[in-house]
């Protein structure tokens, strides 16, 4: 195992603990400091429309029945389903979805969006590779597969591109539904269609389990909830299969990841290549969990932050040539491939 990989694994586990169990760890601290003024306006559902707090504890959208420590939306899949409310409120898709329904004025949203863009601008999709708890769960599934000695499925480039279109499709549908149910004429559907993506997100079933809270896994009360429950199970199955048989195939269609990916090009963290050093061994492309090949293919020097890159820096790590690949942070060299001799994992 190599240094970057170890660092990343440790970081992932720490983030998972912090983001998922933040509720347990920081709840008391938060209650004592509650009087402090936040720069973020607290977004509240307008009267008459549905809000998460209107759900009872144990319902689909609020199994833990707890509020988060910080009402904020970082660019990774931190979830509203976390036990005891978790550290942060939810992911950015949740944020958009919720506020489209509530028709919140833009000026109230600006601080949140600014923070989100700033975080993305600094680290790009590093959030996916290093922080996202769902990604960590998936990586654990991959780890299990490796221990079981099962061959990895490699999906062709086209398939992965199509996956991202699927992701955009799902996102578009979810946001459209959220917008429609925000209109006064359709407000009566809010109780069923509120946060449509959250209802099918794999985190809906995974996250509560971290706190040994029973996820709402068999809500068959009405036709719509039944549909959502079945869909959630299907998506979870897809999620598990994607991580178990492939590597991070799921991340190609994760809507939060897709939103992050818009900021990947031009992000502060830059992956760069010195083409003359390259011996076209393909180690980088082979090790890429997202199955990206540009790092391997390019014959010119440059910065190659691809949209789907989750910045795990595995390519930098496995490259056998000194100084060929490297990572910069706003033009400053963070680390480069060194000519050291390494042990195999």
């Amino acid at each position: 195992m190599n240094k970057i990989n170890i660092a990343r694994r440790i970081f992932q586990i720490l983030s998972l603990v912090l983001l998922v169990y933040g509720g347990y760890i920081f709840k008391e601290w938060k209650e004592s400091a509650e009087t402090e003024q936040s720069i973020f306006p607290s977004l509240k559902a307008p009267p008459g429309s549905i809000s998460t707090t209107k759900f009872e504890k144990g319902s689909i959208l609020w199994p833990s029945g707890a509020t988060p420590v910080i009402e904020n939306y970082p660019p990774s899949l931190v979830c509203r389903f976390n036990p005891k409310g978790g550290m942060f409120k939810a992911c950015i898709l949740h944020f958009f979805s919720e506020n489209l329904t509530w028709q919140t004025q833009i000026k109230y949203l600006l601080p949140y969006i600014t923070l989100f863009i700033l975080l993305c601008f600094l680290f790009g999709r590093m959030w996916c590779g290093w922080v996202c708890p769902i990604g960590t769960v998936g990586d654990f599934l991959t780890f299990l597969r490796r221990k079981m000695n099962i061959k990895v499925r490699r999906f062709p480039q086209n398939f992965r591109i199509n996956l991202s279109f699927t992701g955009y499709g799902i996102m578009a549908i979810a946001l459209t539904i959220s917008t429609i149910i925000g209109m006064p004429n359709f407000a009566r559907y809010q109780c069923y269609w509120f946060l449509p993506y959250c209802q099918i997100c794999p985190a809906r079933l995974i996250c509560p389990m971290f706190g040994l809270i029973k996820p709402n896994w068999k809500d068959f009360s009405t036709g719509i909830t039944t549909t959502f429950t079945i869909l959630a199970w299907l998506v979870l199955g897809l999620f598990v299969a994607a991580f178990y048989f492939g590597r991070r195939v799921w991340c190609h269609m994760c809507p939060v990841g897709l939103i992050n990916s818009w900021f990947n090009k031009g992000a502060g963290v830059e992956l760069h290549k010195k083409a003359i050093k390259c011996i076209k061994c393909g180690y980088c492309a082979d090790a890429c969990p997202m199955g990206l090949t540009k790092m391997y293919q390019m014959n010119n020097d440059g910065i190659y932050n691809q949209n789907a890159c989750i910045m795990c820096f595995r390519c930098v790590e496995v490259c056998p040539r000194e100084n060929c690949l490297g990572v910069k942070f706003f033009g400053k060299e963070l680390f480069r491939r060194k000519n050291d001799t390494k042990k195999v994992s």
Partner: peptide
């Protein structure tokens, strides 16, 4: 001698693939 075997997937097929990369793709 210069290139190490880089095992990413430590499954049997993954190791064999890593060997192929070292020996053929990285070949001079």
């Amino acid at each position: 001698f210069f290139n190490p075997v880089e095992i990413d997937e430590d499954t049997e097929s993954g190791i064999i693939r890593a060997l192929a990369l070292k020996n053929i793709a990285g070949s001079i």
